[in-house]
């Protein structure tokens, strides 16, 4: 069962990465316009998002 020494931190780390990614995306305003984001994906001549 010594594999647990690796597995537990890995599972915990993966979860933490997900949490961090969510908090970052929220802070950078990516949830401000969900309807707009769904439409903007169809623009093919736009410059990169900010």
């Amino acid at each position: 069962m010594s594999i647990l020494i690796y597995l537990i931190p890995i599972s915990f780390g993966l979860g933490a990465v997900g949490l961090g990614a969510f908090l970052w995306s929220m802070r950078s305003g990516q949830y401000q316009d969900l309807d707009g984001a769904a439409e903007r994906v169809l623009f093919d001549d736009e410059d990169a998002p900010d």
Binding site: S11, F12, G15, A16, G18, L19, F22, L23, M26
Partner: peptide
Amino acid sequence: LIRALAVAGFASAN
């Protein structure tokens, strides 16, 4: 609220 929710969700899954 959303940060608290995200942290609680992460923790309860683990």
